[in-house]
Amino acid sequence: MTPPVLQASDLTKRFGDFTAVNGISFHIKPGEILGLLGPNGAGKTTTIQMLLGLVTPTSGSIHMFGLDLSTHREEILQQVNFSSTYLSMPQSLTVEENLWVVGRLYGMSDMARRVDAIVKKLEMEEFRGKITRKLSSGQMTRLTLAKAFLTEPQILFLDEPTASLDPDVAFKVRSLLKEARRSSGLSILYTSHNMREMEEMSDRIIFLQRGRIVATGTAQEIIDRFGKTDLEEVFLKFAQEQGHSVS
């Protein structure tokens, strides 16, 4: 068996008295798409932020590529990138300038070719010269996806990447992700509130509720375990449970 590219063990994050993530362990295999599912406030974003070194875990450990994130931050983050609908980029720079800055930050060579390639892939030609401030929200999302792909990461963290995309672009982004996984063995951690997308995309799903893992397996396994007909029903069950104890 190939070793996982990412291994999180007993990961916990407390903010004061509040426990956002409560002792979760999971792994991602090379080329695997892992879906992180859960109601609002379940701890998905906090988990991703810990994996990116933006938030320090209260306890537990994170290993990527066999290295400990707390001691090999630079080597790990060089091979990782992320995107989110809620991510911003410098508004006064053009789309292309932003991509160039990111490329330099990650020490990428041959930038002109790379930028051309990613712009073409994500169909950004018509707004590549635009000031970022003037982008529509869907165009902005494509820019943040482009910046994530640009650095050719081994692992991609995507926090609701398709939330503001129209169905056509969302479809293309999903195809692109699956294609990248096939061709370069990219591993992806994915969150979304779109259950159909989750079922389609994820090799495996982790279900979070109030910071704990309450279910894990393929979409079908989870559906069967709880005796439901689809993932949405499972989601509603957990969301309503969580809702009762969250103000």
Binding site: L52, L54, E74, F82, S88, P90, Y106
Partner: peptide, 18 residues
């Protein structure tokens, strides 16, 4: 402040930048 206003700190601190 420019990075703060641009909400770019997250991009920077999640990169290999020290």
């Amino acid at each position: 402040l420019e990075e703060l206003w641009a909400r770019n700190l997250m991009n920077l601190f999640a990169s290999p930048m020290k």
